[in-house]
Design a binder for these strands. Structure first.
Length: 736
DNA sequence: CTCCTTTGTCTTTTT
DNA sequence: GACAAAGGAG
């Protein structure tokens, strides 16, 4: 029995088709990752050197999984395969060669916040009214220009009769200039500059063409123009390009994903083979039928019919609740019920359209002691304190990064204000040096006066950090920065819960630094910063920890769960308000594909829900049930209530004021993480306090596996059972 | 220069 | 309702 015998006919065909261009249309749950991994194994079997194989995935997580699975199949050589995301691939290439484009090889990567500050500065400089032209839309415009591989000059030529766009062309040009001056690239630049590199330096392209003789691209439906450009350049020589995608799961048009890449594939690579994978191994018949029905409402898709041999399974549950609180509560109840029946938390996921919807669930789950993890939202690395520390590291690694230096020059407070910063900046521009270099030359800046000493102190400190970086480990550098700046010290002095949370986050960052240093082959500051810049929230989703996962439908792509709850099935939420008012039918189709993606995440049972009214941006909204619910045949739905699709009415009854307690700490970690507890600081009979329930007496402690189940009799709200690692009970000293 | 209050803007989704 | 940016007092 070979490893290929378990594959079905189409899968085998795809695995054995190794030479030439191949378009693999793989429906949801059709075993596409299996095909990709087996195909890699087969290539190696056929004598292809793993060194010549490249697989591009959508997330780092997918890359890691793929490598592990190939490892299991082939036993050796898997580590030589280049498995990576588009962005990481480009960074690796650019680190080696970007000096050919006039950048320094230790460039930094700017995230969305950095982009925004840069654009903001430019708008100020150009005296552009950001009310007429918001930064967001400028960034979006520049980003899509880059996605289309359009330089500022080309952009200007194309839009020379459009006043606003001509203005944007100017901003775009200046933006690129400043990025370069800061020796920084934004996300789009990573792709853009790599393609540019290949274009102007054929010898570099040739090197990578030789290296990547067999290329595979996952989630091909979500590639944009420049990504297509990149892979077609790489594959031009050997033409062994296998792309895997599903046009029905294309959900990133807003990010420039070009559905034409799938249609065009057969044009650009005219001898391309096309194989369809249509057997679904993931979901029950009912779930799959619902998905098929919904997606059939889209025009303009490649015809395919997903089928499954799985059982029919349960009906899909749909409920319309009164408010979002009720919705979250009922879902939490159901999750609790399933958990009691023995199903594990990690087998359940709550999916929603927008990140803002997570809050209610977070509150609910915390009260009910349901372990959960939220993916996305405000990224850990975007938190103020974390970003501050990263900017210190950036300033050490790349002194040209003005943005980073300016962020930290007065954090913690050193008495350096806006006026001083402006003076330094003027000096830097005048002498054509970086902001940090200007600080080093503070002596020369006559206008500074009293601030001179402060600036010199700052510059000296950065210099000390640099010396430290050269001689010690990253962990030591980090500790040294914390100590020298007194960052944590100052937070400690605040003695607020918020400051405590921030300290926790800084410690968490320190953990990441240490982990990185232990795991990396050749740890370096540059690589650390790069890893931080390129992580997606989904990347550190650990399948083994037993928690309910909460995330957006977008983040859920590529994942599967036995039990899936999709909430907020309301017109105005999902499909979103923006798509409903949109003139463009394609927007609604994309939204529908997102719905299809959501439904097909479920293996065993799908729960859909809506709320009649919900609070949005401080206003109460009354939403109708989502049109997507209407697109699911009634016989597949179990509503269990008097809900009827025909009579989709909203009752405008009284809305009692929302009286939920606000107990949520600011800056709380995005997951309700159970720290490993092997010993409790309290015992039966002790007085303890709980963050939500207040004071109480411990009446029972039961050791259950790796955790303790503690029963507490609270003064205010009675007896509750909870897991020690989640409850974070604190003993009240000195028994009263 | 810093801290605190007030005002205004949000409506997707993210590598 | 939440959060950032701007404005005002010390």
């Amino acid at each position: 029995m070979g490893i290929y015998d378990t594959l079905n006919e189409q899968q085998k065909e795809a695995v054995f088709c190794t030479e030439g261009p191949l378009l693999l249309l793989a429906g949801a749950g059709s075993g596409k990752t299996r095909v990709l991994t087996h195909r890699i194994a087969y290539l190696i079997d056929q004598g292809v050197n793993p060194y010549h194989i490249m697989a591009i995935t959508f997330t780092n997580k997918a890359a890691k999984e793929m490598r592990e699975r190939v490892d299991q199949l082939v036993g050796y050589g898997a580590e030589h395969i280049w498995v990576s995301t588009f962005h990481s691939t480009c960074v690796r290439i650019l680190r080696r060669h970007i000096d050919k484009l006039g950048y320094g090889n230790s460039f930094t990567i700017y995230d969305a916040d950095d982009q925004k500050s840069l654009i903001k500065g430019i708008c100020k400089q150009f005296k552009i009214d950001t009310k007429m032209m918001p930064e967001r839309s400028i960034i979006r415009e520049i980003s899509s220009a880059k996605d289309e591989f359009m330089t500022p000059a080309e952009y200007e030529t194309r839009h020379q009769y459009d006043f606003n766009k001509k203005k944007i062309a100017e901003i775009y040009r200046e933006y690129q200039k400043q990025l370069k001056a800061n020796n920084a690239l934004d996300f789009d630049d990573l792709l853009f500059k790599t393609v540019e590199l290949f274009q102007f330096h054929p010898e570099v392209l040739d090197y990578y063409q030789e290296r990547f003789q067999y290329i595979m691209v996952d989630e091909y439906q979500d590639t944009n123009t420049i990504q297509f450009q990149l892979i077609s350049m790489l594959a031009r020589k050997y033409r062994n390009l296998c792309v895997v995608g599903d046009d029905d799961q294309s959900i990133y048009k807003f990010r420039g994903a070009n559905i034409k890449n799938i249609l065009n594939f057969e044009n650009v690579f005219s001898d391309a083979q096309v194989i369809k994978l249509e057997q679904n191994y993931r979901s029950t018949k009912n779930i799959l039928n619902a998905a098929n029905e919904v997606i059939s409402n889209n025009a303009g898709r490649k015809e395919k019919k997903l089928w499954t041999e799985n059982e029919a399974g349960d009906l899909i549950e749909f409920h319309q609740y009164g408010t979002e609180y009720e919705e979250a509560g009922r879902i939490a109840d159901e999750i609790e019920k399933l958990a009691k029946e023995g199903y594990e938390y990690k087998n359940m996921a709550v999916l929603y359209r927008t990140n803002a919807q997570s809050r209610v669930f977070e509150e609910r789950f915390m009260i009910k002691n349901i372990p959960y993890r939220i993916v996305g939202g405000t990224n850990f690395y975007q938190r103020k304190e974390v970003k501050d520390m990263i900017c210190y590291l950036k300033a050490v690694g790349n002194g040209m990064d003005d943005l980073a230096v300016r962020r930290i020059i007065n954090v913690p407070r050193r008495g350096i204000g806006a006026a001083t910063i402006d003076k330094i900046n003027a000096y830097a521009i005048e002498n054509d040096i970086s902001f940090l270099d200007a600080c080093f030359q503070a002596e020369e800046i006559t206008s500074l006066g009293n601030a001179k000493k402060k600036i010199q102190g700052f510059a000296d400190m950065i210099q000390e950090f640099r010396d430290q970086e050269k001689q010690g480990s990253l962990e030591e550098l980090f500790d040294y920065i914390l100590e020298k700046t007194g960052y944590v010290e100052q937070l400690e002095a605040e003695k607020t819960e918020e400051a405590e949370g921030r300290i926790e986050n800084i410690n968490e960052l320190l953990n990441k630094v240490v982990t990185y240093e232990q795991e990396a082959e050749e740890p370096s500051l540059g690589e650390l910063l790069e890893e931080i810049a390129l992580v997606a929230d989904i990347d550190d989703l650990d399948e083994s920890d037993n928690r309910v996962v909460l995330m957006t439908l977008h983040s859920a792509k590529g994942l599967e769960f036995p039990y899936v709850f999709i909430c907020g099935m309301e017109d105005g939420i999902f499909p979103s308000y923006m798509t409903i008012i949109s003139e463009n039918d394609e927007d609604m189709e994309e939204e529908r594909r997102l719905c299809y993606v959501g439904i097909t995440r479920a293996k065993k049972k799908l729960y859909l829900s809506a709320a009649k009214r919900r609070m949005m941006q401080g206003r109460t909204q009354f939403n109708k049930v989502s049109r997507f619910i209407d697109e699911i045949p009634e016989e597949l739905l179990e509503t269990g209530q008097d809900f009827s699709k025909k009579e989709n009415r909203i009752e405008k009854d009284m809305f009692s004021a929302n009286r939920r307690n606000r107990f949520r700490k600011p800056y709380q970690a995005k997951s309700f993480a159970p720290p490993k507890i092997d010993q409790l600081s309290y015992d039966v009979g002790d007085q303890v306090t709980h963050i939500k329930f207040g004071k109480g007496t411990v009446t029972e402690i039961v050791s259950g596996g790796r955790d303790f189940e503690v029963t507490v009799d609270f003064e205010k709200c009675g007896v509750k059972k909870m897991f020690a690692s989640f409850a974070k009970l604190k003993k009240v000293e000195g028994n009263q």
